[in-house]
Design a protein around this nucleic acid. Structure first.
Lengths: 224, 224
DNA sequence: GTATAATCTCAAGCGCGGTCAAATTTTGAT
DNA sequence: ATCAAAATTTGACCGCGCTTGAGATTATAC
């Protein structure tokens, strides 16, 4: 069984680890200014906090270079992410919130719930593997499910697939994408991908949908 | 519409106001030591905090005499109590927790949810007026529903009624009372009330149930 | 009415997570 | 290679909610 999050890990720590996890998904290391911006504090404040996290062995910190999660920190971050995404799924499917609302509520709740609550949500929903946006929900022992998602913008015209992921928490974008009917589960065919950062045209239910590059880059599909 | 809880009221403040509200339900004023015990801090710490609450106009504080809620403090306390009890009802009826578990979870969540979450729970359950233990849920503008509950131990043998309230958060007691089938909604007839603090004997489903005075004193019924 | 016990407040200090301003290191343009 | 700009860290400080220990106040016993 997965070790529980130690009780002595407080809200702020979880928040920092969560942000660092997300930032290190694409980049090498998470830089101080970016972390500070996401948390909503000054870079100086973040710098001090990062040092504390490093002292506690939760992150590896190279001064002036950025931070990476240690195994310990990663385990805790994954648990927080699991809770966040389970909460999003719960808020959406059980409580009826819309997919552009769930991130905010989940963020407020993720440090307030305990393991029993987490397990109860998980069981109530039949152990879901994705949140409403399509993000993967790690298992209790920190393993991500295997999937066949591919970035929408890297496909070729004529490709056919199912929307699986819309990788943003921006409410406005989510609402717009929802209005277009491009939520996870939607079947689409790629009609055209304009060059030089141009829009992507999709066919859904015999309707053509034109999507700007910035939004299209958020999406991943599963080819069929 | 009821004014929302000002955002600048933090967790600790809500906790103190909640405790003071409960303590002033039966007694005149809430004394420092009792408050400190319920919060889980030293009396000195509570004393300092009470002074701060008084400075903020949330409680009326007479040194060495105790604290009472002001109108402002009462409004905030009632909102917290509403959230706590709505959460208990939600955790019980929607999430399937047992009635001895809900208090703990509700306490952890009550300062994490916002008004939208509160409203959503309320709507999902069809605007309940009681938590699983039978405590009344105040309306958004701080009004308690009117009910006809009477204390069980003040009735006479032969009285017939429905259990409406079990006034405790003690898990062990709640589990025991649940095993006896005396949860709110149970129909009972009072067979005998032994004098001098003796047990109360109830008839439920043609079965006699003997209940110690201390537990019986927690219960209220509605006569039929 | 006074001694003593119980209760409460005050003063000093602490850990946490912040702020701002100044010093330092890294980066990138020329 | 130099130098200005950007990023980062450091140092001094703050507010909050707590602790401990001491002193002040109130209640109780006799």
């Amino acid at each position: 069984m997965a070790p529980a999050i130690p009780e002595d890990v407080n809200d702020a720590t979880l928040h920092y680890l969560d942000v660092i996890f997300r930032l290190t998904q694409r980049a090498e290391a998470a830089n101080t200014t970016e972390i500070a911006a996401r948390i909503g504090v000054t870079p100086s404040g973040a710098s001090v906090m990062l040092k504390r996290l490093a002292d506690r062995g939760l992150i590896a910190l190279t001064p002036y270079r950025g931070a990476t999660l240690t195994t310990k920190g990663r385990r805790i971050a994954l648990r927080t992410i699991r809770r966040h995404r389970l909460l999003e799924a719960f808020l959406y499917s059980v409580m009826g919130f819309t997919w552009d609302e769930v991130d905010l509520h989940a963020h407020a709740l993720e440090t307030a719930i305990n393991e029993a609550f987490e397990d109860r949500m998980d069981a109530l929903m039949g152990h879901p593997t994705r949140c409403p946006h399509g993000h993967l929900i790690p298992s209790k022992d920190g393993v991500m499910p295997q999937v066949a998602d591919v970035p929408l913008v890297e496909q070729k015209a004529g490709a056919r697939g199912v929307v699986r992921l819309v990788d943003t928490d921006n409410s406005d974008w989510l609402r717009y994408i929802g209005e277009l009917g491009l939520m996870p589960g939607a079947q689409v065919v790629i009609k055209e991908i304009a060059p030089y950062g141009g829009p992507i045209t999709l066919i859904k239910d015999a309707q053509a949908i034109s999507l700007g590059r910035n939004l299209a880059e958020l999406m991943a599909i599963e080819l069929i």
